[in-house]
Design a protein around this nucleic acid. Structure first.
Lengths: 123, 123
DNA sequence: GACATAGTTAGCCGATCGGCTTACTATTAG
DNA sequence: CTAATAGTAAGCCGATCGGCTAACTATGTC
């Protein structure tokens, strides 16, 4: 129930937010997130569409892991990657909090959310 | 009405998302955003709490401006800064879209939003 | 055992970042 | 006119970033 101030959120999750936002600031990494949002995949599979050396992708994956956005399950010689939704929520909370200060923006977010829910129900 | 795919969002706002997330990856800049969320302020006022040389803050502000998160109104020799909510929405949309792929996350976001709305109505 | 496959580690390189200082511009005050 | 105030511009510096290659580890296959 306790109202969290922006300050509290900032200090509590500050370090994490640094890593999360930094991780998402790169288009390759956002593309990886997008791909993983369609289901888990191995490092190689994730690398395939990216005309980029495998070690580079490996680095990107590790950045996402350190940010807590992606987790890894080693299975034989394959490394399966999947999103870790909780950490995304950390970032969304940060936004949501500030939205409360912008006139009308919460309502806009609310509308967006309800559209997404409808969309999902249609499927 | 047209469903936007993640791909479309990514390509359409890709460059912007780079700048937005990169801008928010720095704690000083997030603190500036927080301060501006409580109302517009001059560059000097924004700099005050930050034990950092003024030119450094000036740079940070420019990063936020280039990301489209902050705008500036020059009034005499003072530069007044304020948040630009629309660009924040760009980032939130990105999250919201992916949340649709995570089980239950949209509902969690929805709950968060409704809590924020209640909170605001209480005030 | 030998080879192939999946992936990481290490290290190089140029570019960008985040801080600084110094010097400048522009507006306001005396 | 002069001095103070608000802020930007330019350039330095060390650190991190994002790509690469070359070499390695570990698992699976023949």
């Amino acid at each position: 129930m306790a109202k969290q101030t922006a300050e509290q959120i900032t200090t509590k999750a500050g370090g994490r937010l640094d890593a999360v936002f930094a991780a998402l600031a790169d288009p390759t990494r956002r593309a990886i997130v997008e791909q993983l949002s369609r289901g888990e995949a191995t490092v190689g599979t994730v690398a395939a569409p990216h005309d980029m050396a495998l070690p580079s992708i490996s680095k990107h994956v590790k950045v996402l892991e350190r940010a807590g956005l992606v987790r890894r399950r080693v299975e034989g010689r394959e490394h399966w990657l999947h999103l870790a939704p909780e950490r995304f929520a950390t970032a969304v909370e940060w936004f949501a909090h500030y939205q409360a200060f912008w006139s009308g923006s919460v309502d806009r977010l609310a509308q967006l959310v309800s559209e997404l829910q409808e969309e999902r129900n249609e499927t």
